[in-house]
Design a protein around this nucleic acid. Structure first.
Lengths: 244, 244
DNA sequence: TGCCATTCAAATGCCAGACAATTAAATGTA
DNA sequence: TACATTTAATTGTCTGGCATTTGAATGGCA
Protein backbone atom coordinates (compact mmCIF):
# COMPACT_ATOMS: atom_id res chain seq x y z
CA UNK A 1 0.00 0.00 0.00
CA UNK A 2 1.35 3.36 -0.96
CA UNK A 3 0.51 6.77 0.41
CA UNK A 4 -2.86 7.46 -1.20
CA UNK A 5 -4.19 4.21 -2.60
CA UNK A 6 -7.90 4.95 -2.79
CA UNK A 7 -8.26 8.28 -4.55
CA UNK A 8 -6.45 9.09 -7.77
CA UNK A 9 -6.68 12.85 -7.62
CA UNK A 10 -5.87 15.17 -10.47
CA UNK A 11 -2.23 15.81 -11.11
CA UNK A 12 -2.70 19.51 -10.45
CA UNK A 13 -4.42 18.74 -7.14
CA UNK A 14 -1.58 16.44 -6.09
CA UNK A 15 1.07 18.98 -6.99
CA UNK A 16 -0.86 21.70 -5.17
CA UNK A 17 -1.08 19.44 -2.13
CA UNK A 18 2.65 18.76 -2.23
CA UNK A 19 3.48 22.45 -2.37
CA UNK A 20 0.88 23.25 0.29
CA UNK A 21 2.44 20.68 2.61
CA UNK A 22 5.84 22.23 2.02
CA UNK A 23 4.47 25.61 3.05
CA UNK A 24 2.53 24.38 6.07
CA UNK A 25 5.47 22.34 7.30
CA UNK A 26 7.78 25.29 6.89
CA UNK A 27 10.01 23.80 4.19
CA UNK A 28 9.02 26.82 2.13
CA UNK A 29 9.08 29.98 4.18
CA UNK A 30 7.40 33.34 3.79
CA UNK A 31 8.56 35.40 0.81
CA UNK A 32 10.62 32.51 -0.50
CA UNK A 33 10.45 32.15 -4.26
CA UNK A 34 9.16 28.89 -5.67
CA UNK A 35 10.92 27.43 -8.70
CA UNK A 36 9.67 28.82 -11.99
CA UNK A 37 6.77 27.13 -13.72
CA UNK A 38 9.15 25.57 -16.20
CA UNK A 39 11.35 24.18 -13.43
CA UNK A 40 8.37 22.87 -11.48
CA UNK A 41 6.99 21.18 -14.56
CA UNK A 42 10.30 19.44 -15.02
CA UNK A 43 10.61 18.49 -11.34
CA UNK A 44 7.12 16.99 -11.19
CA UNK A 45 7.31 15.56 -14.70
CA UNK A 46 4.21 17.34 -15.94
CA UNK A 47 3.44 20.07 -18.44
CA UNK A 48 3.41 23.75 -17.65
CA UNK A 49 -0.39 24.16 -17.81
CA UNK A 50 -0.76 21.48 -15.16
CA UNK A 51 1.72 23.26 -12.92
CA UNK A 52 -0.13 26.49 -13.52
CA UNK A 53 -3.42 24.94 -12.43
CA UNK A 54 -1.73 23.80 -9.24
CA UNK A 55 -0.34 27.28 -8.59
CA UNK A 56 -3.75 28.85 -9.17
CA UNK A 57 -5.18 26.53 -6.54
CA UNK A 58 -2.65 27.81 -4.04
CA UNK A 59 -3.23 31.40 -5.11
CA UNK A 60 -6.95 30.94 -4.46
CA UNK A 61 -6.09 30.18 -0.84
CA UNK A 62 -3.74 33.16 -0.64
CA UNK A 63 -0.85 30.78 0.01
CA UNK A 64 1.22 32.25 -2.82
CA UNK A 65 1.33 35.42 -4.85
CA UNK A 66 2.77 35.72 -8.33
CA UNK A 67 4.75 38.44 -9.96
CA UNK A 68 5.48 38.85 -13.61
CA UNK A 69 8.65 39.90 -15.32
CA UNK A 70 12.31 39.23 -14.72
CA UNK A 71 13.02 37.95 -11.21
CA UNK A 72 9.30 37.39 -10.96
CA UNK A 73 7.67 34.12 -10.07
CA UNK A 74 5.56 32.60 -7.33
CA UNK A 75 6.33 33.57 -3.76
CA UNK A 76 5.08 32.18 -0.49
CA UNK A 77 2.60 34.74 0.74
CA UNK A 78 2.42 35.96 4.31
CA UNK A 79 -1.22 35.28 5.06
CA UNK A 80 -2.61 38.53 6.44
CA UNK A 81 -5.48 38.78 8.87
CA UNK A 82 -7.39 40.64 6.20
CA UNK A 83 -7.02 37.86 3.63
CA UNK A 84 -7.76 35.19 6.20
CA UNK A 85 -10.87 37.04 7.32
CA UNK A 86 -12.11 37.44 3.77
CA UNK A 87 -11.78 33.72 3.20
CA UNK A 88 -13.38 32.87 6.49
CA UNK A 89 -16.35 35.09 5.75
CA UNK A 90 -16.87 33.56 2.33
CA UNK A 91 -16.63 30.05 3.72
CA UNK A 92 -18.88 30.71 6.70
CA UNK A 93 -21.48 32.50 4.64
CA UNK A 94 -21.68 29.68 2.11
CA UNK A 95 -21.69 27.07 4.83
CA UNK A 96 -24.74 28.64 6.40
CA UNK A 97 -26.56 29.32 3.15
CA UNK A 98 -25.99 25.86 1.68
CA UNK A 99 -26.75 23.69 4.66
CA UNK A 100 -29.96 23.40 6.57
CA UNK A 101 -28.76 25.43 9.52
CA UNK A 102 -31.60 26.71 11.62
CA UNK A 103 -31.68 30.36 12.50
CA UNK A 104 -31.57 29.31 16.15
CA UNK A 105 -28.35 27.36 15.74
CA UNK A 106 -26.57 30.15 13.90
CA UNK A 107 -27.81 32.71 16.36
CA UNK A 108 -26.72 30.69 19.35
CA UNK A 109 -23.23 30.18 17.96
CA UNK A 110 -22.78 33.81 17.10
CA UNK A 111 -23.87 35.19 20.46
CA UNK A 112 -22.05 32.54 22.45
CA UNK A 113 -18.82 33.53 20.73
CA UNK A 114 -19.55 37.18 21.06
CA UNK A 115 -20.22 36.87 24.77
CA UNK A 116 -16.78 35.33 25.05
CA UNK A 117 -15.32 38.61 23.81
CA UNK A 118 -17.47 40.89 25.94
CA UNK A 119 -15.48 40.80 29.19
CA UNK A 120 -12.20 41.29 27.35
CA UNK A 121 -13.63 44.14 25.34
CA UNK A 122 -15.06 45.83 28.42
CA UNK A 123 -11.63 45.63 29.95
CA UNK A 124 -9.49 46.83 27.08
CA UNK A 125 -11.64 48.81 24.63
CA UNK A 126 -10.14 52.06 23.45
CA UNK A 127 -11.74 55.32 22.44
CA UNK A 128 -12.07 54.40 18.74
CA UNK A 129 -14.09 51.31 19.58
CA UNK A 130 -16.48 53.24 21.80
CA UNK A 131 -16.83 55.92 19.16
CA UNK A 132 -17.50 53.37 16.45
CA UNK A 133 -20.25 51.81 18.55
CA UNK A 134 -21.84 55.20 19.22
CA UNK A 135 -21.65 56.09 15.53
CA UNK A 136 -23.48 52.93 14.56
CA UNK A 137 -26.10 53.43 17.26
CA UNK A 138 -26.75 56.91 15.93
CA UNK A 139 -27.04 55.58 12.41
CA UNK A 140 -29.42 52.84 13.48
CA UNK A 141 -31.68 55.39 15.14
CA UNK A 142 -32.51 56.96 11.80
CA UNK A 143 -35.92 55.56 10.78
CA UNK A 144 -35.18 56.32 7.13
CA UNK A 145 -32.45 53.68 7.12
CA UNK A 146 -33.21 50.69 4.90
CA UNK A 147 -33.37 47.24 6.43
CA UNK A 148 -30.19 46.21 4.65
CA UNK A 149 -28.31 49.25 5.83
CA UNK A 150 -29.62 48.61 9.33
CA UNK A 151 -28.20 45.09 9.22
CA UNK A 152 -24.89 46.34 7.87
CA UNK A 153 -24.69 48.84 10.69
CA UNK A 154 -25.55 46.09 13.14
CA UNK A 155 -22.60 44.09 11.86
CA UNK A 156 -20.34 47.12 12.17
CA UNK A 157 -21.47 47.64 15.76
CA UNK A 158 -20.68 44.10 16.73
CA UNK A 159 -17.35 44.14 14.97
CA UNK A 160 -16.37 47.22 16.92
CA UNK A 161 -17.38 45.39 20.09
CA UNK A 162 -15.26 42.39 19.18
CA UNK A 163 -12.31 44.47 18.05
CA UNK A 164 -12.39 46.17 21.42
CA UNK A 165 -10.99 42.99 22.94
CA UNK A 166 -7.73 43.88 21.25
CA UNK A 167 -7.09 40.30 20.22
CA UNK A 168 -6.62 39.94 16.46
CA UNK A 169 -7.17 36.19 16.61
CA UNK A 170 -10.54 36.69 18.25
CA UNK A 171 -11.45 39.37 15.71
CA UNK A 172 -10.54 37.04 12.90
CA UNK A 173 -12.55 34.15 14.27
CA UNK A 174 -15.59 36.27 15.06
CA UNK A 175 -15.65 37.95 11.67
CA UNK A 176 -16.95 34.74 10.11
CA UNK A 177 -19.58 34.18 12.78
CA UNK A 178 -20.90 37.74 12.67
CA UNK A 179 -20.81 38.34 8.93
CA UNK A 180 -22.25 34.98 8.00
CA UNK A 181 -25.39 35.89 9.91
CA UNK A 182 -26.01 38.94 7.76
CA UNK A 183 -27.76 37.19 4.87
CA UNK A 184 -30.07 35.55 7.39
CA UNK A 185 -30.72 38.86 9.13
CA UNK A 186 -31.42 40.49 5.79
CA UNK A 187 -34.46 38.27 5.41
CA UNK A 188 -36.04 39.98 8.38
CA UNK A 189 -38.25 42.98 7.90
CA UNK A 190 -37.78 45.19 10.93
CA UNK A 191 -40.65 47.11 12.38
CA UNK A 192 -40.01 50.50 13.92
CA UNK A 193 -40.76 48.98 17.32
CA UNK A 194 -38.27 46.13 16.91
CA UNK A 195 -35.58 48.52 15.76
CA UNK A 196 -36.14 50.59 18.86
CA UNK A 197 -35.70 47.56 21.07
CA UNK A 198 -32.49 46.54 19.31
CA UNK A 199 -31.02 50.02 19.45
CA UNK A 200 -31.89 50.26 23.14
CA UNK A 201 -30.05 47.00 23.77
CA UNK A 202 -27.10 48.25 21.76
CA UNK A 203 -27.05 51.30 23.99
CA UNK A 204 -27.05 49.12 27.08
CA UNK A 205 -24.17 47.06 25.72
CA UNK A 206 -22.16 50.09 24.64
CA UNK A 207 -22.68 51.72 28.02
CA UNK A 208 -21.61 48.60 29.85
CA UNK A 209 -18.48 48.33 27.72
CA UNK A 210 -17.73 52.02 28.19
CA UNK A 211 -17.95 51.66 31.97
CA UNK A 212 -15.82 48.50 31.85
CA UNK A 213 -18.71 46.41 33.08
CA UNK A 214 -17.99 43.02 31.54
CA UNK A 215 -20.87 41.09 33.10
CA UNK A 216 -23.24 43.89 32.14
CA UNK A 217 -22.17 43.64 28.52
CA UNK A 218 -22.69 39.91 28.69
CA UNK A 219 -26.20 40.38 30.01
CA UNK A 220 -26.93 42.88 27.28
CA UNK A 221 -25.82 40.38 24.68
CA UNK A 222 -28.02 37.72 26.25
CA UNK A 223 -31.01 40.02 25.99
CA UNK A 224 -30.10 40.90 22.42
CA UNK A 225 -29.86 37.23 21.54
CA UNK A 226 -33.32 36.62 22.95
CA UNK A 227 -34.69 39.57 21.02
CA UNK A 228 -33.01 38.51 17.78
CA UNK A 229 -34.26 34.98 18.23
CA UNK A 230 -37.80 36.21 18.73
CA UNK A 231 -37.63 38.28 15.56
CA UNK A 232 -36.09 35.51 13.51
CA UNK A 233 -38.43 32.79 14.70
CA UNK A 234 -41.49 34.37 13.16
CA UNK A 235 -39.84 34.90 9.79
CA UNK A 236 -38.27 31.50 9.49
CA UNK A 237 -41.18 29.56 10.93
CA UNK A 238 -43.31 31.21 8.24
CA UNK A 239 -40.80 30.21 5.56
CA UNK A 240 -40.77 26.64 6.77
CA UNK A 241 -44.55 26.49 6.50
CA UNK A 242 -44.44 27.82 2.96
CA UNK A 243 -41.88 25.26 1.89
CA UNK A 244 -44.14 22.34 2.66
CA UNK B 1 -14.28 55.81 -12.85
CA UNK B 2 -15.35 52.26 -13.52
CA UNK B 3 -15.79 49.38 -11.13
CA UNK B 4 -12.21 48.32 -10.41
CA UNK B 5 -9.84 50.84 -11.93
CA UNK B 6 -6.74 50.22 -9.85
CA UNK B 7 -6.13 46.50 -9.99
CA UNK B 8 -5.91 44.65 -13.28
CA UNK B 9 -6.27 41.11 -11.99
CA UNK B 10 -5.56 38.02 -14.03
CA UNK B 11 -8.26 36.90 -16.39
CA UNK B 12 -8.58 33.61 -14.58
CA UNK B 13 -8.96 35.45 -11.27
CA UNK B 14 -11.64 37.69 -12.68
CA UNK B 15 -13.56 34.78 -14.17
CA UNK B 16 -13.28 32.89 -10.90
CA UNK B 17 -14.59 35.95 -9.07
CA UNK B 18 -17.53 36.23 -11.46
CA UNK B 19 -18.47 32.60 -10.95
CA UNK B 20 -17.92 32.84 -7.21
CA UNK B 21 -20.26 35.82 -7.04
CA UNK B 22 -22.86 33.88 -8.97
CA UNK B 23 -22.64 31.10 -6.40
CA UNK B 24 -22.62 33.34 -3.34
CA UNK B 25 -25.54 35.37 -4.63
CA UNK B 26 -27.48 32.22 -5.39
CA UNK B 27 -27.64 32.65 -9.16
CA UNK B 28 -25.96 29.26 -9.32
CA UNK B 29 -27.46 26.86 -6.83
CA UNK B 30 -26.17 23.71 -5.20
CA UNK B 31 -25.66 20.76 -7.54
CA UNK B 32 -26.34 22.92 -10.57
CA UNK B 33 -24.06 22.18 -13.47
CA UNK B 34 -21.90 24.97 -14.80
CA UNK B 35 -21.51 25.33 -18.56
CA UNK B 36 -18.79 23.13 -20.01
CA UNK B 37 -15.27 24.50 -20.22
CA UNK B 38 -15.69 25.03 -23.94
CA UNK B 39 -18.90 26.98 -23.43
CA UNK B 40 -17.43 29.06 -20.64
CA UNK B 41 -14.40 29.90 -22.74
CA UNK B 42 -16.72 31.12 -25.45
CA UNK B 43 -18.94 33.09 -23.05
CA UNK B 44 -16.02 34.87 -21.43
CA UNK B 45 -14.06 35.17 -24.64
CA UNK B 46 -10.99 33.41 -23.34
CA UNK B 47 -9.21 30.16 -24.03
CA UNK B 48 -9.97 26.87 -22.34
CA UNK B 49 -6.79 26.77 -20.24
CA UNK B 50 -7.73 30.14 -18.76
CA UNK B 51 -11.19 28.88 -17.90
CA UNK B 52 -9.63 25.80 -16.37
CA UNK B 53 -7.39 27.92 -14.14
CA UNK B 54 -10.46 29.78 -12.95
CA UNK B 55 -12.28 26.53 -12.21
CA UNK B 56 -9.30 25.19 -10.29
CA UNK B 57 -9.37 28.28 -8.13
CA UNK B 58 -12.98 27.57 -7.24
CA UNK B 59 -12.23 23.90 -6.69
CA UNK B 60 -9.49 24.88 -4.24
CA UNK B 61 -12.15 26.58 -2.14
CA UNK B 62 -14.48 23.58 -2.46
CA UNK B 63 -17.01 25.76 -4.25
CA UNK B 64 -17.26 23.35 -7.17
CA UNK B 65 -16.53 19.73 -7.89
CA UNK B 66 -15.78 18.27 -11.30
CA UNK B 67 -16.73 15.02 -12.90
CA UNK B 68 -15.34 13.52 -16.05
CA UNK B 69 -17.09 11.81 -18.87
CA UNK B 70 -20.39 12.29 -20.65
CA UNK B 71 -22.82 14.43 -18.66
CA UNK B 72 -19.87 15.33 -16.51
CA UNK B 73 -18.72 18.84 -15.86
CA UNK B 74 -18.35 21.26 -12.99
CA UNK B 75 -21.07 21.35 -10.37
CA UNK B 76 -21.74 23.76 -7.55
CA UNK B 77 -20.64 21.91 -4.46
CA UNK B 78 -22.58 21.83 -1.24
CA UNK B 79 -19.94 23.02 1.17
CA UNK B 80 -19.87 20.45 3.95
CA UNK B 81 -18.88 21.18 7.51
CA UNK B 82 -15.98 18.80 7.04
CA UNK B 83 -14.60 20.68 4.05
CA UNK B 84 -15.18 24.05 5.68
CA UNK B 85 -13.40 22.89 8.81
CA UNK B 86 -10.44 21.59 6.88
CA UNK B 87 -10.04 24.94 5.17
CA UNK B 88 -10.49 26.85 8.37
CA UNK B 89 -7.84 24.78 10.10
CA UNK B 90 -5.34 25.31 7.29
CA UNK B 91 -5.99 29.04 7.22
CA UNK B 92 -5.88 29.47 10.99
CA UNK B 93 -2.74 27.41 11.35
CA UNK B 94 -0.92 29.39 8.70
CA UNK B 95 -2.19 32.66 10.06
CA UNK B 96 -0.70 31.89 13.44
CA UNK B 97 2.56 30.50 12.13
CA UNK B 98 3.23 33.30 9.66
CA UNK B 99 2.38 36.29 11.80
CA UNK B 100 3.97 37.39 14.99
CA UNK B 101 1.15 36.20 17.22
CA UNK B 102 2.20 35.83 20.81
CA UNK B 103 1.44 32.61 22.58
CA UNK B 104 -0.61 34.64 25.07
CA UNK B 105 -2.85 36.10 22.37
CA UNK B 106 -3.52 32.76 20.73
CA UNK B 107 -4.09 31.11 24.08
CA UNK B 108 -6.51 33.78 25.22
CA UNK B 109 -8.56 33.56 22.04
CA UNK B 110 -8.77 29.82 22.15
CA UNK B 111 -9.87 29.55 25.76
CA UNK B 112 -12.25 32.48 25.54
CA UNK B 113 -14.04 30.77 22.68
CA UNK B 114 -13.95 27.43 24.37
CA UNK B 115 -15.46 28.83 27.55
CA UNK B 116 -18.31 30.09 25.41
CA UNK B 117 -19.10 26.46 24.55
CA UNK B 118 -18.73 25.07 28.05
CA UNK B 119 -22.18 25.90 29.44
CA UNK B 120 -23.90 24.63 26.30
CA UNK B 121 -21.84 21.47 26.35
CA UNK B 122 -22.55 20.86 30.02
CA UNK B 123 -26.23 21.16 29.25
CA UNK B 124 -26.48 19.02 26.14
CA UNK B 125 -23.51 16.63 25.99
CA UNK B 126 -24.38 13.07 25.14
CA UNK B 127 -22.78 9.81 26.19
CA UNK B 128 -20.35 9.67 23.22
CA UNK B 129 -18.87 13.02 24.13
CA UNK B 130 -18.33 12.02 27.75
CA UNK B 131 -16.80 8.75 26.63
CA UNK B 132 -14.49 10.49 24.19
CA UNK B 133 -13.26 12.80 26.92
CA UNK B 134 -12.63 9.90 29.28
CA UNK B 135 -10.81 7.99 26.56
CA UNK B 136 -8.47 10.89 25.93
CA UNK B 137 -7.87 11.42 29.63
CA UNK B 138 -6.90 7.77 29.94
CA UNK B 139 -4.56 8.07 26.98
CA UNK B 140 -2.95 11.20 28.38
CA UNK B 141 -2.25 9.44 31.65
CA UNK B 142 0.16 7.06 29.96
CA UNK B 143 3.66 8.40 30.68
CA UNK B 144 5.02 6.58 27.63
CA UNK B 145 3.02 8.88 25.35
CA UNK B 146 5.15 11.18 23.22
CA UNK B 147 4.73 14.92 23.55
CA UNK B 148 3.21 15.12 20.09
CA UNK B 149 0.72 12.38 20.81
CA UNK B 150 -0.10 14.08 24.09
CA UNK B 151 -0.90 17.30 22.22
CA UNK B 152 -2.99 15.42 19.67
CA UNK B 153 -4.94 13.81 22.46
CA UNK B 154 -5.37 17.21 24.07
CA UNK B 155 -6.91 18.52 20.87
CA UNK B 156 -9.21 15.49 20.70
CA UNK B 157 -10.33 16.11 24.27
CA UNK B 158 -11.21 19.71 23.58
CA UNK B 159 -12.98 18.88 20.35
CA UNK B 160 -15.15 16.39 22.22
CA UNK B 161 -15.94 19.12 24.71
CA UNK B 162 -16.89 21.55 21.98
CA UNK B 163 -18.88 18.98 20.02
CA UNK B 164 -20.85 18.31 23.18
CA UNK B 165 -22.58 21.66 22.69
CA UNK B 166 -24.39 20.04 19.78
CA UNK B 167 -24.03 23.12 17.63
CA UNK B 168 -22.27 22.35 14.35
CA UNK B 169 -21.56 26.02 13.70
CA UNK B 170 -19.75 26.29 17.00
CA UNK B 171 -17.83 23.09 16.30
CA UNK B 172 -16.80 24.44 12.93
CA UNK B 173 -15.66 27.77 14.30
CA UNK B 174 -13.79 26.27 17.21
CA UNK B 175 -11.98 23.70 15.11
CA UNK B 176 -9.75 26.42 13.73
CA UNK B 177 -9.02 27.96 17.09
CA UNK B 178 -8.20 24.66 18.76
CA UNK B 179 -6.24 23.01 15.97
CA UNK B 180 -4.23 26.08 15.10
CA UNK B 181 -2.78 26.03 18.60
CA UNK B 182 -1.34 22.57 18.14
CA UNK B 183 1.87 23.59 16.38
CA UNK B 184 2.52 26.06 19.16
CA UNK B 185 1.78 23.46 21.81
CA UNK B 186 4.08 21.02 20.06
CA UNK B 187 6.99 23.29 20.85
CA UNK B 188 6.48 22.65 24.53
CA UNK B 189 8.31 19.83 26.25
CA UNK B 190 6.03 18.54 28.94
CA UNK B 191 7.43 17.38 32.22
CA UNK B 192 5.73 14.51 34.01
CA UNK B 193 4.58 16.95 36.63
CA UNK B 194 3.01 19.38 34.15
CA UNK B 195 1.22 16.54 32.41
CA UNK B 196 -0.24 15.46 35.71
CA UNK B 197 -1.57 18.93 36.34
CA UNK B 198 -3.14 19.14 32.90
CA UNK B 199 -4.74 15.72 33.16
CA UNK B 200 -6.10 16.61 36.58
CA UNK B 201 -7.69 19.74 35.12
CA UNK B 202 -9.10 17.71 32.24
CA UNK B 203 -10.67 15.42 34.84
CA UNK B 204 -12.22 18.39 36.62
CA UNK B 205 -13.64 19.71 33.38
CA UNK B 206 -14.95 16.33 32.26
CA UNK B 207 -16.57 15.76 35.65
CA UNK B 208 -18.21 19.18 35.58
CA UNK B 209 -19.56 18.57 32.10
CA UNK B 210 -20.75 15.09 33.08
CA UNK B 211 -22.67 16.53 36.05
CA UNK B 212 -24.09 19.33 33.88
CA UNK B 213 -22.20 21.92 35.86
CA UNK B 214 -21.62 24.65 33.32
CA UNK B 215 -19.95 27.20 35.58
CA UNK B 216 -17.72 24.48 36.97
CA UNK B 217 -16.57 23.59 33.46
CA UNK B 218 -15.87 27.25 32.84
CA UNK B 219 -13.77 27.47 35.98
CA UNK B 220 -11.86 24.38 34.96
CA UNK B 221 -11.10 25.95 31.59
CA UNK B 222 -9.94 29.13 33.31
CA UNK B 223 -7.55 27.13 35.44
CA UNK B 224 -6.36 25.20 32.40
CA UNK B 225 -5.74 28.43 30.53
CA UNK B 226 -3.63 29.71 33.39
CA UNK B 227 -1.67 26.47 33.50
CA UNK B 228 -1.15 26.44 29.73
CA UNK B 229 -0.07 30.04 29.79
CA UNK B 230 2.45 29.30 32.53
CA UNK B 231 3.92 26.42 30.54
CA UNK B 232 4.05 28.35 27.30
CA UNK B 233 5.53 31.50 28.75
CA UNK B 234 8.76 29.80 29.74
CA UNK B 235 9.25 28.21 26.34
CA UNK B 236 8.44 31.25 24.26
CA UNK B 237 10.20 33.77 26.48
CA UNK B 238 13.29 31.62 26.07
CA UNK B 239 12.85 31.58 22.29
CA UNK B 240 12.49 35.34 22.20
CA UNK B 241 15.76 35.71 24.09
CA UNK B 242 17.56 33.45 21.64
CA UNK B 243 16.28 35.39 18.67
CA UNK B 244 17.95 38.58 19.74
C1' DT C 1 32.97 59.32 -13.48
C1' DG C 2 28.02 59.45 -13.24
C1' DC C 3 23.50 59.35 -15.27
C1' DC C 4 20.05 58.08 -18.49
C1' DA C 5 18.04 55.60 -22.42
C1' DT C 6 18.17 51.25 -24.71
C1' DT C 7 18.36 46.51 -25.08
C1' DC C 8 18.02 42.03 -23.31
C1' DA C 9 16.50 38.06 -20.90
C1' DA C 10 13.58 35.69 -17.77
C1' DA C 11 9.34 34.89 -16.12
C1' DT C 12 4.33 34.82 -16.04
C1' DG C 13 -0.14 35.42 -18.82
C1' DC C 14 -2.61 33.74 -22.52
C1' DC C 15 -3.85 31.11 -26.64
C1' DA C 16 -4.64 27.32 -30.34
C1' DG C 17 -4.95 22.72 -31.27
C1' DA C 18 -4.60 18.11 -30.31
C1' DC C 19 -4.95 13.63 -27.96
C1' DA C 20 -6.06 10.62 -23.84
C1' DA C 21 -9.26 8.98 -20.42
C1' DT C 22 -13.61 8.59 -18.61
C1' DT C 23 -18.41 7.96 -18.43
C1' DA C 24 -23.36 8.12 -19.41
C1' DA C 25 -26.44 7.35 -22.92
C1' DA C 26 -27.74 5.43 -27.24
C1' DT C 27 -27.65 1.51 -30.02
C1' DG C 28 -27.62 -3.06 -31.38
C1' DT C 29 -28.18 -7.99 -30.40
C1' DA C 30 -29.39 -12.43 -28.39
C1' DT D 1 -36.12 -7.97 -21.72
C1' DA D 2 -31.30 -8.13 -20.64
C1' DC D 3 -26.80 -7.50 -21.89
C1' DA D 4 -22.84 -6.10 -24.71
C1' DT D 5 -21.15 -2.53 -27.87
C1' DT D 6 -20.67 1.83 -29.80
C1' DT D 7 -20.88 6.65 -29.56
C1' DA D 8 -20.56 11.24 -28.03
C1' DA D 9 -19.62 14.60 -24.62
C1' DT D 10 -16.61 16.21 -21.19
C1' DT D 11 -12.66 16.79 -18.42
C1' DG D 12 -7.49 15.86 -18.02
C1' DT D 13 -3.13 16.60 -20.10
C1' DC D 14 0.45 17.86 -23.43
C1' DT D 15 3.02 20.53 -27.06
C1' DG D 16 4.31 24.71 -28.83
C1' DG D 17 4.00 29.27 -29.32
C1' DC D 18 3.34 34.35 -28.72
C1' DA D 19 2.40 38.52 -25.71
C1' DT D 20 3.43 41.18 -21.75
C1' DT D 21 5.87 42.63 -17.94
C1' DT D 22 9.89 43.88 -15.48
C1' DG D 23 14.47 43.85 -13.46
C1' DA D 24 19.12 43.99 -14.91
C1' DA D 25 22.83 44.53 -18.06
C1' DT D 26 24.64 47.49 -21.64
C1' DG D 27 26.20 51.41 -23.84
C1' DG D 28 26.29 56.24 -25.01
C1' DC D 29 26.66 60.95 -23.50
C1' DA D 30 27.73 64.86 -20.67
Amino acid sequence: MTATPARPEDLSARIAAALRDAIVQGRLIVDQRLPSEAELSEQFGVSRPTVREALKRLAAQSLIRTQRGASGGAFVNRLSFQEAQAQQITTSTLLLSMNAISFETACEARFALERACAPLSAQRRQAPHLEAMQTEIARQSDPALSDEAFCASDVAFHRALVDGAGNPVLSYQLAGAVEAMQPLMNMITFTARSRERIVALHRDIADAVASKDGPGAGDGLLALEAETLRLGRDVFAERERNKR
